[in-house]
């Protein structure tokens, strides 16, 4: 017999599959890393092979923010605002040393890592990371989302069983 939980978990799986294979990245590119990000979307590396080519500059239409470049204190409120404007579920990839930790700019105007204001899912080191490095990071994010959704599914299933038994 097909229960309610079977339907919802299948829908969840489908949703996860779709989500994983079509990130819509929002490139928050400011500096050197943005140039390497451009390399990732141009023909030599071509992120479209993973289904991630729909680069959206509007936060409302994207689900992965790729912060590429130094974030200064002046930029920080903008970054926060754009992150807040993104609809859930959303992820953040921090690309390069500056975005991850401030890099070698231990300076009066540079944010020491964007995790001061937004949660980061994947940190990609490098200054700037090679395009492969960024792609590796994004693929790691994909794995992470898979893992998370599996865990969620498991919890849901357990929860569904509980509620079923309680009803019986």
């Amino acid at each position: 017999m097909i229960g309610e939980s079977w339907v919802t978990t299948t829908v969840d799986k489908l949703e996860e599959w779709g989500r994983n294979n079509s990130f819509w990245p929002l490139p928050f590119g400011t500096a050197c890393c943005a140039i390497e990000f451009m390399s990732v979307v141009s023909s030599h590396y071509d992120m479209a092979r993973f289904g991630y080519e729909v680069v959206r500059f509007s936060p409302r239409q994207s689900d992965v923010m790729i912060v590429a470049g130094t974030i200064t204190d002046k930029m920080a409120p903008t970054l926060k605002r754009i992150y807040d404007q993104m609809p859930d579920p959303k992820w953040v990839v921090s690309m390069g040393a500056c975005a991850c930790s401030g890099g070698f700019y231990r300076a009066y105007h540079v944010m020491q890592g964007i995790d001061e204001i937004v949660p980061v899912d994947v940190y990609v080191p490098g200054c700037p990371p090679t395009p492969e490095g960024l792609m590796y990071g994004i693929l790691q994010l994909k794995e992470k989302i898979k893992r998370d959704s599996k865990r969620r599914l498991k919890e849901k299933r357990a929860h569904g069983d509980d509620s079923g038994s309680a009803a019986a």
């Binding site: 400011t30 500096a31 470049g69 130094t70 200064t72 002046k74 930029m75 903008t78 500056c98 070698f104 700019y105 300076a107 009066y108 105007h109 540079v110």
Partner: peptide, 11 residues
Amino acid sequence: IGYLHRCFEKM
């Protein structure tokens, strides 16, 4: 401008 002022000269 100034959104990418990384303090090169101070560094």
